[in-house]
Write a protein that binds this DNA or RNA. Structure first.
Lengths: 89, 89, 89, 89
DNA sequence: GTGGTCTAGACCACT
DNA sequence: GTGGTCTAGACCACG
């Protein structure tokens, strides 16, 4: 988690870079299916970005079908994710 | 009771949605005047929301003059309620 | 936990019997020092007594120096309990 | 700020005790008119209470006319407060 | 065995 | 990086 370094020099949103970083972690099994991601505040702290950026990143993960967010509960890794392919459920 | 489905997508508080749902039940006669509502814990279970949300919903019903809450006894439907109109007592 | 059977025939408060039962569990190591006891509601369910009785029983445990209650957090087994002897901290 | 110690033994809500404590600070000039109070999260940390309790305490301060809360901005001490007397604006 | 208060901490909307 | 709402569940006071 601590080796995420946003690159401000390239024209790619930090949120997208963060989403890609988290996608890689999920793909690598750092977050198992069914596991809960750290809270938005904790992710913001650990990635060194603002909480708004984290929210945009998790929104991207939802659109990629990688996670599901339960209000006031947390964001959870979906069970049948295919990183380069289809959609969960 | 079991067909209440809170809608998290719209900017209306869940507590307000629950209060409206209970108001409709009272209006329809599902709870007669003088009847006791289910306990807050049971309402929370049946509506699928937290007990804090139920407490805010019953607070709204009190402000609408639909019910009266007796601590340690329960929450009771008022006698002379008029849903779209006046106030009890 | 499930083998507690209050004896209504003898002139000993059920709460005291429950306190003695819990004291034995702590003494036997069923609840380790620092561990949290089950919630009052759960204890009431498991022991088959009312929640008020459980509250009186835990009050007795506090007076015996066996546990410490943190409001809204739970009741915890003290660290240096001596069942037949002194007081914790 | 750090000498606030909630008293759980007396039947006065912790939120009310916290509100009284903050009222005294405002009265003593520790927070000047127009000043921003610490964030609710920081207050919760410093007072040793939960954020929900802090929110109820600031609600009380609003009802007392001592502060004004701007969502997403903070809570500010009103200009013309008279602790034992009138109301701001 | 109810309603009441409090804790801890989540996500959300907005600046 | 704030205030706002919600969750889940604890103990408390009372009947």
């Amino acid at each position: 988690m601590s080796d995420f370094v946003p690159n401000w020099q390239i024209p790619v949103y930090i949120a997208t870079q963060a989403a890609d970083y988290l996608t890689a972690l999920i793909s690598d099994g750092a977050f198992s299916p069914g596991a809960r991601l750290p809270s938005e505040r904790q992710l913001a702290d650990e990635l060194g970005v603002s909480i708004g950026t984290v929210r945009r990143a998790t929104q991207i993960l939802r659109e990629r079908g990688l996670v599901k967010t339960l209000p006031s509960r947390g964001t959870y890794v979906n069970e049948h994710v295919r990183i380069g392919g289809g959609r969960d459920e």
